[in-house]
Amino acid sequence: MAKINWFKYSSPASFYPLAGKVVPWFAWLAAILGVVGLYVAFFEAPLKDYQQGQSYKIIFIHVPTAWMSMFIYVVMALWAAAGMVFNTRLSYMMAKALAPTGALFAFLALWTGALWGKPTWGTWWVWDARLTSELILFFLYIGFIALGSAIEDPRRAARACGLLALVGVVNVPIIYFSVLWWSTLHQPPSLKLNEATMGTSMLVGILLVTFSLWFYTIAVALVRVRGEILERERDTSWVAQLIHEGKE
């Protein structure tokens, strides 16, 4: 078997066309899984919860967006770490490309949570551990983006943002375990191994929407990173060649 040199794809020149080819695939996967997931959420899962009525339908987007907001941050921190260890140019670009979408999902987790909290808890917001740590996650994303755009020199920006991403990742387990460590209005984790916490159709719906958002994130982040590559490598011969061939 031929040995694949993975570091080859850490060079922007070979990553750029590859990323361009896979974006439509991820976009289509996201769309299809999203439609199927919403179908399951509204047509297969129970019409209402015996306590919460129809408001429980918010779970099908609240849990996926909250998971994605944490997951994207971890991936971002891994890219930052990879950038520091291997000193690859692409790593920080990947972290940077993920941040806006992560911020978006953190906002949506808070938003859908507020709209779910009002009818079920009687309040839009409480300053408890789960909600507050998720809000901090949102601010960490905003801080990462702001820090990156405040530093002119790309190498220094990469270093500073990488550090922030790595330090901030400590917040993610705090969010996840907050509902177990502190008393809160928020319910415990929706998914547990070896333990049934919800009906199959609900679980399937939530997982389908999560995978849809996952592929959406990959597609969006790849488009963003391609823009960044083009911008940063505009003085190189491979970009010039792409432009002349009309393949940018």
Binding site: G53, Q54, S55, K57, L115
Partner: peptide, 8 residues
């Protein structure tokens, strides 16, 4: 969504 339309 009944009385939860706004929230959902």
């Amino acid at each position: 969504m009944g009385k939860y339309s706004f929230y959902v």
